[in-house]
Design a protein around this nucleic acid. Structure first.
Lengths: 204, 204
DNA sequence: ACTTGACTTTCACCATTTGTTCACCTTAAA
DNA sequence: TTTAAGGTGAACAAATGGTGAAAGTCAAGT
């Protein structure tokens, strides 16, 4: 993926979210208002730039609300490999941030990273020790999605359920108990979009 | 990839980290401040050097914040997507010969293909309905490896064990019984090297 | 066909940020 | 001693980020 500046990233995320939520792109005016620009031209120029850099495209000229998120580069893309998650261990375990090549259709919204799973807390969902998770960074999740969350500073992979004002983080392992926590204590880091497993070195 | 000096290493790591964390490259000024240079030119020269040596690239001249890490693994390849396997069904030679992009380190001997799994016969090994298996075509397997095999014309995914002159094909599902067959009746198609799962469309 | 409303695109112009280059200096290795 | 890596500092050029107004497009509706 080509470079992007902070300002462009802001516009891009907004458009991306908007399309996800509504199914069609926002009008320039909506972007302007939401992001606090005073001129439509600012919006226009950012969108043009994003188009030039390959993040967006508009299928026909002058089309209304027809922006599309470009499926990230045919083939695959490299995303940062941030380390490991295991129940009860902070993510920031691995300093040596490498990157890993993943197929395009495993990527989510454009801000992705990978983590290796430690432990068996999700084994009933077929997520095993050593598997690599592809995660899209986003601060909210839908019920039932598998998420990476920080609970009081500790990172885990669990299934997410909103129960009234509480959040349940549910392991997929009959041996383990779910975590219940106040919404304020839980920070959703991202949602699991894909899983890679290599049998290369393993011997079952 | 050519060698790299300690100073260059330092700059490179910083840029890599920054991009991983922010999603966009740092400005020269940020690099200068963070690494304690007094002149921007020091930064410039290091970055140019890294570009020349193939560690970084900037897609267009004079572009702002557009540095990219050159992917070290350079690696993925397209392999044919052959269809589906489910216990008791021949491999559906999918007409629509598609292909799927997979990371290089998931490939085996050079003759690979992909299959989508149907059914739960391997669920205890974390192989679930809908998962995509990367398979290396080879006619023999080692005990305990997960294989795609043809038994009397029917294709299955099972774990392979040689028991004297017989072959045991063992599902990873306590509900299912292993298949015992004479070695002559079993044709090993290939060995499972990798697994890809996408949570994109699934709703748990 | 003409008008309207909802949008997108362009023009002209300005401030700021950021990348590039020039000239010149130091130190360690071949 | 010539060469390459590391550095300093200042000047320059280009891309980005923004403002405001005007002009252009397109799909309805009358």
């Amino acid at each position: 993926m080509t470079g992007i500046t902070p300002a462009q990233q802001k516009v891009f995320s907004f458009v991306r979210e908007y399309i996800n939520r509504h199914g069609y792109s926002p009008s320039y005016e909506e972007v302007r208002r939401s992001l606090g620009f005073k001129s439509l031209n600012s919006v226009y120029k950012h969108l043009k730039q994003l188009e030039r850099r390959g993040y967006l495209k508009s299928p026909w000229d002058n089309g209304k609300r027809v922006l599309e998120i470009v499926s990230l580069a045919a083939g695959s893309a490299a995303i940062p490999f941030l380390g490991e998650v295991a129940a009860g261990t902070p993510i920031e375990a691995v300093e040596t941030s490498e990157s890993i090549e993943v197929p395009e259709n495993f990527l989510g919204n454009g801000n992705n990273f990978a983590l290796r799973v430690r432990g068996d807390s999700m084994i009933d969902d077929g997520i095993r020790d050593g598997d690599i998770l592809i995660i899209t960074r986003q601060p909210q999740a839908e019920n039932g999605q598998t998420v990476v969350a920080l609970v009081r500073g500790e990172a885990t992979v669990k299934k997410f359920y909103l129960r009234g004002s509480e959040i349940e983080l549910k392991p997929a392992n009959s041996q383990m108990k779910p975590i219940f926590a106040d919404a304020a204590e839980v920070e959703i880091v991202g949602v699991v979009m894909g899983l890679l497993r290599s049998y290369r070195t393993q011997k079952h």
